[in-house]
Lab assay of single mutants.
Amino acid sequence: MSIQHFRVALIPFFAAFCLPVFAHPETLVKVKDAEDQLGARVGYIELDLNSGKILESFRPEERFPMMSTFKVLLCGAVLSRVDAGQEQLGRRIHYSQNDLVEYSPVTEKHLTDGMTVRELCSAAITMSDNTAANLLLTTIGGPKELTAFLHNMGDHVTRLDRWEPELNEAIPNDERDTTMPAAMATTLRKLLTGELLTLASRQQLIDWMEADKVAGPLLRSALPAGWFIADKSGAGERGSRGIIAALGPDGKPSRIVVIYTTGSQATMDERNRQIAEIGASLIKHW
């Protein structure tokens, strides 16, 4: 067993022997301040990774656009098919120029040779490549099948209805392509620590998230040296922004954090800054 596999296998073990965790309302004060600064709703939840206990939450059962955070769930569904012998990570998928959609920095470079399922998941999570996500959605049967996968996990809230990039439209009061912070946090925890996926697939999923290259201005910008984070960000229309993450000190994750916002007129930089400040408060009061 590799060191990384050992780390993920012992996530519940280490967490069980940690000192009790206590909620700190100071972080919620910052979440509410972010709402004021952005002029928009902000949803927040913080779960203990081992027990699933909610440590703090704000608007945990209000719907927010998922945006690209759905790509972690998508690759979880792909990995479940791999575990069941219905898919192979090494299978190569070929596609054409007509398949390319807006923001496809990886797939646009491989029109000639195609990409493997493993490479597509890596591109979808680490670079948020939209064509990679659409190609992977095709392998599982489309958005409705991802929703069905989530329902089978016990998540009857999260739903995907459309493809990239239309799913980022974020129309107010439109339930399409949305989740709730509580539902997303619980589902992410199941994917990373539950028995739904094999140990190898859980490790692969967290490795992809740990290698995320496009979430630097968010929670990662607030992390002290030595902290662990595996995350996936999302951005959408109407001032929408979000991030889902597993993080913790001492090089291992111990909490799940989900943050979503929508309806702001603020710039992307300002949305990023507010999420980073929430992260800084979380870490300060850990």
Score class of each variant (00 low, 15 high):
73 L>D: 04
188 L>V: 12
268 M>H: 09
258 V>T: 07
17 F>V: 15
61 E>G: 15
155 D>T: 01
152 N>P: 04
191 L>I: 10
216 G>D: 08
274 Q>G: 09
34 A>N: 03
38 L>P: 07
9 A>I: 12
158 T>E: 00
221 S>Q: 13
65 P>A: 06
253 P>K: 08
162 R>W: 02
200 A>K: 13
2 S>A: 08
33 D>H: 15
27 T>D: 04
261 T>G: 03
63 R>C: 07
122 S>M: 15
173 N>P: 07
40 A>Y: 03
195 E>I: 03
121 C>K: 00
146 L>H: 02
99 D>T: 09
256 I>Q: 01
239 G>I: 01
36 D>Q: 04
147 T>P: 03
14 F>D: 00
248 G>N: 03
131 T>R: 02
237 E>P: 15
144 K>A: 15
16 A>S: 15
36 D>T: 15
202 R>V: 09
88 Q>N: 13
113 D>C: 09
50 N>Y: 13
72 V>D: 00
106 V>D: 07
109 K>A: 14
69 T>I: 04
153 M>K: 08
286 W>Y: 07
33 D>F: 03
173 N>T: 12
236 G>T: 05
278 I>R: 00
253 P>N: 08
265 Q>R: 13
245 A>K: 00
181 P>W: 00
267 T>D: 14
204 Q>P: 02
273 R>D: 10
261 T>R: 03
122 S>D: 15
75 C>M: 06
77 A>Q: 14
222 A>P: 10
55 L>M: 15
54 I>D: 06
4 Q>F: 10
6 F>G: 06
70 F>Y: 05
2 S>G: 07
236 G>M: 02
91 R>C: 04
231 D>N: 05
198 T>R: 09
219 L>K: 04
188 L>G: 04
177 D>T: 01
118 R>Y: 15
129 D>G: 00
79 L>W: 01
194 G>Q: 12
148 A>D: 14
163 W>A: 10
222 A>D: 09
49 L>K: 04
18 C>L: 06
97 Q>D: 13
3 I>V: 07
77 A>H: 10
180 M>V: 14
167 L>R: 02
52 G>L: 05
274 Q>L: 15
219 L>I: 14
285 H>D: 07
165 P>S: 07
35 E>P: 01
206 I>L: 15
30 K>I: 09
118 R>F: 13
69 T>D: 00
18 C>F: 06
15 A>H: 08
158 T>F: 07
73 L>P: 09
23 A>W: 03
45 I>W: 02
145 E>S: 12
81 R>T: 07
276 A>C: 11
80 S>A: 11
184 M>Q: 04
213 K>A: 15
33 D>S: 10
243 I>M: 06
236 G>F: 02
215 A>I: 03
163 W>Q: 09
45 I>K: 01
281 S>N: 12
17 F>N: 08
237 E>H: 11
9 A>H: 12
27 T>R: 03
179 T>D: 00
14 F>Q: 03
92 R>A: 09
159 R>Q: 09
207 D>W: 12
63 R>G: 04
96 S>D: 12
182 A>V: 15
94 H>K: 14
153 M>D: 04
76 G>R: 00
233 S>R: 01
128 S>G: 03
17 F>W: 10
117 V>S: 03
81 R>Y: 08
134 N>W: 02
140 I>E: 04
130 N>V: 01
170 A>D: 08
57 S>I: 07
237 E>I: 10
203 Q>S: 13
42 V>G: 01
16 A>D: 03
2 S>L: 14
180 M>E: 15
27 T>P: 06
151 H>L: 13
121 C>L: 05
2 S>F: 11
72 V>Y: 01
145 E>P: 09
220 R>C: 03
147 T>R: 11
243 I>N: 02
166 E>I: 13
259 I>L: 10
86 Q>I: 14
269 D>Q: 12
94 H>D: 11
7 R>H: 13
99 D>I: 09
236 G>W: 01
11 I>N: 05
146 L>N: 02
228 F>N: 06
232 K>A: 01
17 F>D: 03
209 M>C: 06
58 F>S: 10
101 V>S: 10
182 A>H: 12
278 I>A: 02
187 T>C: 09
50 N>C: 08
75 C>G: 09
168 N>C: 06
124 A>T: 11
250 D>P: 09
74 L>E: 04
281 S>Q: 13
94 H>Y: 14
211 A>E: 14
114 G>P: 03
208 W>S: 03
208 W>T: 03
5 H>T: 10
236 G>H: 02
187 T>P: 00
262 T>E: 10
112 T>Q: 15
222 A>H: 10
76 G>C: 06
242 G>L: 00
174 D>I: 03
90 G>C: 09
41 R>Y: 10
119 E>L: 03
67 M>H: 07
86 Q>Y: 13
101 V>A: 11
148 A>W: 09
256 I>M: 07
176 R>L: 08
273 R>S: 10
267 T>E: 13
198 T>L: 10
242 G>N: 03
90 G>D: 14
255 R>D: 01
88 Q>W: 12
259 I>A: 04
55 L>D: 04
48 D>A: 08
100 L>S: 04
214 V>Y: 05
246 A>D: 03
73 L>F: 08
130 N>H: 00
264 S>E: 04
153 M>Q: 09
90 G>W: 11
30 K>R: 11
271 R>G: 08
166 E>M: 14
204 Q>Y: 09
89 L>Q: 05
178 T>C: 07
167 L>G: 05
239 G>S: 05
167 L>Y: 02
99 D>Y: 07
12 P>C: 13
104 S>Y: 03
166 E>F: 14
90 G>F: 10
205 L>D: 00
